[in-house]
Write a protein that binds this DNA or RNA. Structure first.
Lengths: 222, 222
DNA sequence: CGCAAGATTGATTTTGATCAACGGCAGTGG
DNA sequence: CCACTGCCGTTGATCAAAATCAATCTTGCG
């Protein structure tokens, strides 16, 4: 739980304030478990993740933890969405990302029609994912949650349906994201294997071996 | 559960495609329980709600229902965020809203700096609310969920802290939103009253009578 | 090796879902 | 007017699922 101001990695922010519109964003790398605190930013940044996974981690008063949102490679995280949140952005894996200055990002977005439409599409996609996640959390059983999570990973990582899905997250992070305890999650894994819907190799890469059944389960067709 | 194409209410869509930039958006009113299906739209609209409450309703395979997101007056609902979702937008109360054509909205947003910054702020706010909702769903007990919901309503309806909060939603809709059954929700209400944290009048308007305690509870300080 | 962190398994408890019944109330129709 | 109906919310009793508590196993690492 190392606390790091992103400014340490975002050298020479002045370089990004000028008028040039093709200035490349700054690249940065963060180790696993580094926490990026939104309040420690002077210039609110937008992160475009190139590898690894970020999550917004929240802590309840008595220590219960949750991860409300995940960010996979190719997805955008706008730090301004959590200004008044208690949540902190946490690197669930080693992460590399390119950083935009918030104002710079907005300007690009206004001035470049292509960039603008990509931005809108990205926003809508993230919101759609959030809505789906709420559905998963609200009413599904532990096994249904895990089935949904596996599909979510496959989609967001753009894994070919024939390929194995590397869930490189720790069990505890998956559990925090899906609103389960690790023990319950572990039992859900056992259940899916026992039902012959998935298999997993020694690297915890999941292969879906009965996709229709797993899909039904994820959709709550009880 | 009346199914209505928004086109019935959005007369003369051609009028909105021209170049005039100050074209006022179209106003519409919908009755309670009207369902707006995203797939029935030809021109994807953006709704700015002026009164009432909208929700995105989802149905699992075996009939379990969820409401993943709510939209209160002053908030924007971009129908493009649920293009490939099974969810439908449902009027949880009688609703009035102004409708923008999606492309028109995007153009306004690109061309008008003020509109643009309002749009970004709105997006971030909605995303923040979604993240908080995930936290509420993932780990909180039924009573904590209700406490959180009361604060969420107060914030999103901009109710003065000294005033009563009108939760005009049906119990079943609140329950679907918070991932509870109506019976459990009802017991949570009883519990909060018994703990002398809230009172409610005959119109189901809630008054917070011990805000610090209710806040602690909502934050999970167990 | 010894240790720590992560993952799994088992036994027990707690919470919320489920099932069932009831009361209030608005709308309907004789 | 009053029975009848359907919807909504509440309450009570029981059940099932997940949390909790505890122990064990696995793996990587100084």
């Amino acid at each position: 739980m190392t606390q790091v101001s992103y400014l340490q990695d975002y050298q020479n922010p002045e370089r990004h304030i000028g008028k040039a519109r093709s200035r490349p964003p700054q690249f940065s790398a963060f180790e696993q478990d580094v926490e990026l605190d939104g309040n420690s930013f002077t210039s609110t940044p937008v992160l475009n993740i190139t590898s690894g996974v970020l999550g917004i981690r929240h802590m309840l008063g008595d220590g219960r933890q949750t991860i409300s949102m995940l960010f996979f490679p190719g997805e955008l995280l706008d730090f301004r969405c959590l200004l008044d949140t208690k949540g902190t952005v946490s690197c669930l894996l080693p992460v590399t990302a390119s950083l935009y200055d918030g104002d710079e990002y907005d300007r690009l977005q206004r001035e470049n029609a292509h960039f603008n439409s990509e931005h809108i599409a990205s926003n809508n996609r993230q919101y759609h994912i959030a809505a789906q996640h709420c559905v998963d959390l609200a009413r599904k059983s532990s096994v249904e949650k895990l089935a949904s999570f596996i599909f979510e990973c496959r989609n967001r990582l753009h894994v070919d349906p024939t390929q194995a899905i590397a869930l490189r997250l720790r069990r505890s992070d998956i559990a925090d994201y899906m609103g389960l305890r690790v023990e319950t999650l572990s039992r859900a894994f056992s259940k899916l294997k026992q039902l012959k819907m998935i298999t997993a190799n020694e690297n915890d890469e999941v292969t879906i071996i009965n996709e229709p059944a797993l899909r039904m389960l994820a959709n709550g067709a009880g």
